[in-house]
Design a protein around this nucleic acid. Sequence first.
DNA 1: TATTCTATCTATAAACT
DNA 2: TAGTTTATAGATAGAAT
Lengths: 229, 229
Amino acid sequence: MRKKVKLAFIVNDKARKVSYKKRHKGLLKKLAELTILCGVEACAIIYSPYESQPKVWPSQRGVQKVIKKFRSIPEFELSKRMLNQESFMKQKVQKAKDQLDKVRKDNREKEMSLLMFQYLTEGNIIDNLSLVDLNDLTCLINENLKEIDWRMKELNKKASTTQNQAQVAEQVVADGATRQAEEAQVMDHGQGFEMNMDAPQNESWILDWINGADDEVLMPFGDANYPKN
Amino acid sequence: MRKKVKLAFIVNDKARKVSYKKRHKGLLKKLAELTILCGVEACAIIYSPYESQPKVWPSQRGVQKVIKKFRSIPEFELSKRMLNQESFMKQKVQKAKDQLDKVRKDNREKEMSLLMFQYLTEGNIIDNLSLVDLNDLTCLINENLKEIDWRMKELNKKASTTQNQAQVAEQVVADGATRQAEEAQVMDHGQGFEMNMDAPQNESWILDWINGADDEVLMPFGDANYPKN
DNA sequence: TATTCTATCTATAAACT
DNA sequence: TAGTTTATAGATAGAAT
């Protein structure tokens, strides 16, 4: 029901003021907590349109002390610090971009996995697949065949029962298909503010294996389909 | 499981640093949200023990602008503002005290109600009741008798059925007793940090009526039992 | 206009990697 | 030491008072 706050100027005057009052209060509380809990000096200055005087925090002594320090810093020193802040921001942006790339790659993998299992279980392949898609899909299926083969061999080695290989193979494929289908969520490819930047929380054994240590395998899933930014 | 944060310096160095990093990050985010959502100018300066440079917010332009304003304010003007801040704090304290009084009064009422219904339902009265307690209790019972009387009259007026008065009266008493007992939570009388400062969320009709408009009734429940602060 | 209520979103303490 | 995860405490949007 309650909508997620969109990080943008609140156009409605009334709503903005209400929000300001709540958030202003919350902010000062947080700042107070930070200074008390962690024993740091800090101050905040807020020029609100609702009061003629800027709102300051904390009380008399605190702000004067902190501000005094700032007064004593020459102008050019200040600029230098600001530039540091700017480069810090650039780092942040780069990090966010890296995360984006990672999520896109993950999404691509999940999509492909979904396609693969659709193909394996329903026997039909979706139209409109690009050459790249088909290539990745083929790759993925080959990976899985290898995996199955490897697992069969492992089981053979260790088997103390009389299970035959065909049964084992079927079991592995069915198991993998179920888990993969459950986990394959095709995520948003857009670049909006709401984009999911979280890394996926559960990797299937297939993806683990693909991402994993085997250097002989050529890695598929480039970001060919996504615009560079 | 997770304990409620106690508003005090975190003694454990490791825990304090972890907390600082999280809260610092959270604070700047909040500040950014405030400025964007509500279109206000603001800045924060944090002198952390973990960085040689004070942490500032927001980026270059923002801080310089806000700080410049502050630089241009004469020292004595600053003091004046700080005093305003101080008086603002005094107001806050007074408000908190008022709230405390209110909660204490509410608690007193709830205790008395509980006693009354224990007396009415179990027929025995707890020992160690002071003269004041007994007086309040008598008062409260009289109030309730009046209320019952009033309700009976109302029902008589409006009754289109053939219900007799005795039945109605019994109904009212039973109903009131149940609701009152459910709602009567005897709250903490201490003055610790954890004290419940919330106003009670559900008033019974009896308390509504006691607090309400009838000026003829002498109000019981002074704060006689509590130390003034 | 401010306060209260409450469903929901967000921050973060603690544990784990 | 820093990043991740998870459960819970805390903040707050929106509605009602």
